[in-house]
Design a protein around this nucleic acid. Structure first.
Lengths: 114, 114
DNA sequence: CAGTATCCAGACCGATACTG
DNA sequence: CAGTATCGGTCTGGATACTG
């Protein structure tokens, strides 16, 4: 059984926090997540939306985000092939936490003005 | 003035989110933050608390966290020298967001049990 | 269009020795 | 005790070409 102290220790392997660390530690992860959440879901469009992102890295990130169940992949058996990525329910919770970092910005700005 | 769409774009340079990315992307950052929040505030103790952490990397992390105003450094002019690091108010908000990632774990566990 | 393979420069971090 | 300097291996990500 977990002790209360454990509530305050970071770095549990396999935890959501460790996952967040892994995701955020990779360059381009947040950019990709950002455009996917905006509804830009096809690889070609994702790449064209993000200046400087290469195919290789994009696919690595999409794979990682998929593996962590933050986004999910749907492939349509057409010619030419079509693939779509969308946030999962878990992914929506995940990005809503990321938003709270941004919310701190607003708070700091507001404070600066007053 | 910012458009509504900007609310959903990640990756603003200089933002708290970019800072979070920078911090979390560095190995050992969260470990260091974790022990400092527990009140382990002196470098020697911090290092002894974290298996595998070297002096060099610890100091790099402490510097970065200090630069971002997540923790603050207090030096006492004694012999031998004594230094303490503590969370700032901003840092407390920062770690409370990190806790929400961990909170997702609880939620998932609870759901698994039921 | 979606995705993979290969190559390589540079960043990161671990080990160690050192200063005040 | 707190912190810095140096060196070297590893791993990441950027460029490019390629397959189905």
């Amino acid at each position: 059984m977990a002790e209360a102290k454990d509530m305050y220790s970071f770095e549990k392997p396999g935890s959501t926090l460790a996952m967040a660390e892994d995701v955020m530690g990779c360059k381009w992860s947040l950019s990709v997540l950002g455009v996917v959440r905006q509804g830009i879901c096809r690889p070609g469009m994702i790449q064209r939306s993000i200046e400087g992102l290469t195919t290789k890295v994009m696919n690595e990130r999409l794979k990682k985000l998929t593996r962590y169940n933050i986004i999910e992949r749907q492939a349509y058996p057409e010619i030419p092939p079509r693939v779509e990525y969308h946030l999962t329910d878990f992914g929506k919770k995940f990005v809503s936490i990321l938003d709270q970092f941004s919310a701190l910005d607003q708070e700091l700005e507001t404070r600066a003005k007053s």
